[in-house]
Simulated scan of single mutants.
Amino acid sequence: MTRRPDVAVIGGGVIGLAVAWRCAQRGLDVHVFHDEIPGTASAVAPGMLAPVSEADFPDPALLAFAHEARRAWPAFAAELAAASGIDLGYATDGLLLVAHSAEDRARLAGMYAFREGYDVPCESLDADGLRAREPLLAPECRGGGFATEDHHVDAQRVRTALRAAGRALGVRYVDRRVRSLDEVCAGSVLVAAGAWSPELHEWPVTPVRGQVVLLRDPSKGPGLRHGIRGVVRGEPVYLAGRDGHETVVAATLDHAGFDVRPSARATESLLRKAVALVPALAGHEVAATRVGLRPDTPDHLPVMGPVPGRSGAYVCTGHYRHGFLLAPVAADLMTALMLGGTDGIPAAFAPQRFRSTKESTSR
C-alpha cells in the first residue's frame, strides 16, 4: 500500500516541481502526480524572465510580483544548478526590444507607456544602436530598446533540474493523472495542474494555446547575442538563442480550447516575423513545432492560496505566460503557507475572488 505523504503536488510543471523541491528541503515526504499530457505549458515554454519587456501585466500587484520574482532568479538558478548538477542556460545579458518599421516603433512605445514609474526604464536605441548589440538584425529594423533587467533560461533544463534536485531529496514522481482531490491522500495537497486545474475544483482557468517553433542552423553559424522581443506589422514575436545553433521562436496566442495540434498558419506567421527581424533564419531548419496551453483567468491574475471549503488543500495556478518567471517566489510563498500558515501571497490572487466558474464567466 502506498504510504501517505506529507505533501502531494498535483501537476509537474515548473511551479509544482519547484514547490515539491522546496518542501523536500524541509525534510518532508513529497509525492508529485503528473501525466505529461500533450499541451503541458511548461514543456514548451520559451523561458522568458522578462518583467520589463513583457507587456501583459494587467495589475500593479502582478507587476510588482513579477519584479520580485526576477530579482529572485539569480540565487534560485545558482542554488538549483548546484543541487542538480545541470547547467540551466540562464542568461543575464538583457533583452532587445526591436521595431521592424516606424509604425512598429510607435506601437512598441505605446505598449509600454502604462508602465511608467513601475519598471527599471529600458535604454532607448536607434537602428544603429540595435545592430551594434545584435549584428544579425535586418537593416530595416527602425529602433527600440534594451531591457537590462530581462533575462531568459532554458525552460526544459530547469524542469529537468527541478526533478533531479527533488529526486535527490527523496521526492517521488508518480506518472498518473489525478482528476479529483478525493483520489489523493496527504497532509497537504497542492493543485498546480495548469490549464487542467478546473478538473479538480471550480476555478475559471481556461487554456490559451501558444505555438513555439524551434529552428536549427545546419551551418552552425553565429547565433543571437540576446533574446529579442520584436514587433513586425503590429504583431509581436519572441526570439531566443539556445544551445549555440538553435533559435526558439514564440508568441502566438489562440483560444482553441484543448486543441494541441500545431497550426500551419501560426507556424507561417512566426517564421515570417522571425525572418523579417533576422534574415539569416531563412536558411535554418525547422527542428520542431510545439503547442502549449497556458492557464489563464478572467482577470489574467494567478490563483494562489487555500482551496475554499477544503481543509489541507491549496492551489497555485493561472500564471498564464509567466509560470517560469514567477516560479521562485510562488514556490516560496506556497511552501510557507502550506507548512507554516504564513500567508504572504498578494490579496489580488486569492481563490475566493471567484465564487464559481459559472458565476465568474457570466459576469
Rank of each mutant, 00 (worst) to 15 (best):
A66S: 03
E79P: 00
F57E: 00
S101H: 02
V278P: 00
D217R: 14
V212D: 07
S269N: 09
A348V: 08
A313G: 00
S188G: 00
Y118K: 07
M338D: 00
V260H: 02
D56S: 12
P38N: 11
T357L: 04
R209P: 00
R272H: 15
G309H: 03
G144N: 05
D93K: 11
S311K: 14
G27F: 04
Q156F: 00
G223L: 12
A66Y: 01
P279W: 05
V212W: 06
R71H: 12
A64L: 12
D259S: 03
E54R: 07
V120W: 02
R272G: 06
P298S: 02
H245F: 12
S124P: 00
S263K: 06
G11R: 07
A147V: 05
L293N: 06
H34Y: 14
G257D: 09
A75S: 14
P222S: 09
A276W: 05
F349I: 11
M111G: 05
R4G: 00
V231K: 07
L125D: 06
M338H: 02
G170Q: 08
R310F: 10
A55V: 11
T247G: 02
E79D: 14
L17H: 03
R159P: 00
A195P: 00
G170I: 13
Y112N: 10
T206S: 14
G12I: 05
V120T: 13
A41Y: 05
G230V: 02
G47D: 02
R321M: 14
W203V: 11
A75G: 08
A132I: 07
A274G: 07
D217C: 06
A24W: 11
R163H: 03
M1I: 02
S197R: 02
G16L: 13
R177M: 13
V237K: 01
R159W: 08
L270P: 01
G318C: 09
G166N: 09
S311T: 12
G230D: 04
T40F: 01
G85M: 10
M1P: 01
P262S: 10
V120L: 13
V158T: 03
K220F: 14
Y320H: 15
E246A: 14
P222R: 14
D299Q: 09
E235Q: 11
F65P: 01
P222D: 06
F76C: 11
G187T: 01
V191L: 09
P302T: 07
I15M: 00
L339V: 15
F65S: 01
G305R: 03
P351M: 10
A155N: 04
Q352K: 10
H152L: 07
